[in-house]
Amino acid sequence: MSLLTPEPGLLFWMLVSFGITVFVLAKFGFPSILKSVEKRKNYIEESLLAARKAHEELAGIKKTGEAVLAQARKEQADILKDASLKREMMIEKAREEARQESEKLIASARRQISAEKEEALRSIRSEAATLSLTLAERILREKLGTKEEQKKMIDRLFSEMDISRS
């Protein structure tokens, strides 16, 4: 069986070609390819890790941002509430003051009015007294201008006094 007996010539050429191939590829070819692929694999792994980390960081930042926002919102609400409370208080106070002031004003006005009224009454009274005296004087002067009149008057007064005495 010639198929099962190795030919020395072909053995020689196989040794040469396989030897050269193994030498070149095992020394320069495959280690280089494997190294490059390993490098790329590491790079990809690192990138993935970095991306995941960045993602997590971003999520953390988002969370803190939300917290800050919520706090700010709360503070804003507090401030607004406070402000409205204060405003109401101020308005209330102002109203109270205004009322007191007006009451004071009204009271003083009343007092003045009553004082002036009294004054007026008093002056009217004295005027009226003076006027009536003057009038009485005039009337008397008219009525008791003549001597008979004066005599009649005296008579009557006397009679009246008599009547009351008797």
């Binding site: 020689f12 050429w13 191939t21």
Partner: peptide
């Protein structure tokens, strides 16, 4: 002693050259 570059030997050399070129 027959070290002739036969059909198989030539094919081997050709294949080796081809692999070396491709892989390199």
């Amino acid at each position: 002693l027959d070290l002739s570059l036969t059909k198989n030997a030539a094919s081997l050399l050709f294949a080796s050259l081809l692999i070396i070129l491709i892989i390199m």
